[in-house]
């Protein structure tokens, strides 16, 4: 199965040619050797990729963040972490499969890792509810974070969700409250918290595991208060202005870094994370460890003070009286 976004098509086309060529190992009439021709084509693919990916629009990045081949939480658990064994359930209602979590090791650090999980195919997507969690997902996450805090293990969260699930059950079991409690509790955990937006950072559903000493974001991930489609529907009165909304909302990694809302960008290989999951995972592992070691070195009080101050500082207001004073 092949998935190509519109702007990936020129690359896909060249790749198809390359495949074709590889099937027919014979010299062509122009006097170029078969090997030479393959090299040329590979160079061309590389150039096209570099060109396309250095000029991505915010909307194209949103599409990359949602790419069906993009590595998900479990891919990183396999590629960047070792020894992960899943722990299940919120001890209250159920086991929300839109979240996975448990003990794992990253580099030489033992941690508790929690992430939202999308499905790879229809069957898995039904199981994972397309990565949109119900309240029990956030409560499972909270239970695991409390476990981490109790035993002094740092918390790493991987965020990839279009948002918390808007359904009747979600409301009946108070999805808003589940998220809000996480926001409050995450501010108080003594252990270091590193949050990484690996794909979609969908509003409150993302923030619900997103309060960290460091908040990182992958180069082609996005993090937004509302989906570009949702914003478009409300402000433009139709969903087709989503590309404009994506630009206006300033939701790309670079935008968020410039606005001071994320601490670091985790670089992806040219062509995006799905083009080389292993390299992306290595990059993520490197960034998580670097930041984890930095915040682990801080005394607990200082770390908690910094965490509070960081989120406390977000926002821009105009104060006429203060300016006059």
């Amino acid at each position: 199965m092949k998935h190509h976004l519109d702007f990936e098509k020129p690359i896909a086309e060249l790749q198809r040619k390359l495949e074709e060529l590889k099937q027919h190992p014979e010299n062509h009439s122009l006097g170029i050797s078969w090997e030479e021709e393959i090299r040329l084509l590979e160079r061309k693919i590389e150039d096209a990729r570099r060109h396309i990916f250095s000029n991505l629009t915010p909307w194209q990045r949103v599409q990359l963040a949602r790419h069906p081949k993009r590595p998900y939480t479990q891919d990183y658990l396999r590629l960047a972490f070792t020894g992960f064994e899943e722990l299940h359930g919120d001890r209250m209602y159920g086991d929300d499969r839109a979240f996975v979590g448990g003990f794992a090791q990253i580099g030489d650090r033992k941690v508790v890792v929690i992430g939202t999980q999308k499905g790879r195919d229809t069957k898995e997507n039904i199981l994972r509810n397309f990565g949109s969690a119900h309240p029990e997902g956030y409560r499972k996450a909270l239970r695991l974070m409390r476990l981490a805090d109790k035993f002094g293990l740092p918390i790493v969260t991987l965020i990839d969700t279009a948002g918390a699930y808007p359904g009747v059950g979600s409301e009946e079991r108070h999805i808003g409250e589940a998220i809000a409690v996480n926001l409050r509790e995450m501010m108080l955990f003594n252990v270091p918290i590193i949050a990484v937006v690996i794909g979609e950072g969908g509003s409150g559903g993302a923030l619900g595991i997103g309060v960290g000493d460091r908040v990182l974001i992958l180069e082609n991930a996005y993090y937004s208060v509302i989906s570009p489609e949702g914003c478009s529907a409300i402000l433009w009165k139709n969903r087709s202005a989503a590309p404009d909304a994506a630009a206006a909302l300033r939701i790309t990694a670079t935008d968020l870094r410039q606005l001071g809302l994320v601490d670091d960008i985790v670089s992806e290989p040219v062509g995006g994370a799905h083009n080389d999951p292993a390299a992306t995972a290595a990059s993520l592992k490197d960034a998580v460890l670097r930041h984890l070691n930095e915040v682990s070195a801080q005394p607990v009080e200082e770390r908690l003070r910094n965490r509070y101050r960081k989120f406390r500082s977000f926002g821009h207001v105009l104060e006429p009286s203060a300016q006059a004073a």
Partner: peptide, 9 residues
């Protein structure tokens, strides 16, 4: 944008 979301935290 995200400044609004962060007011929640």
């Amino acid at each position: 944008g995200m400044f609004s979301l962060m007011q929640m935290a």
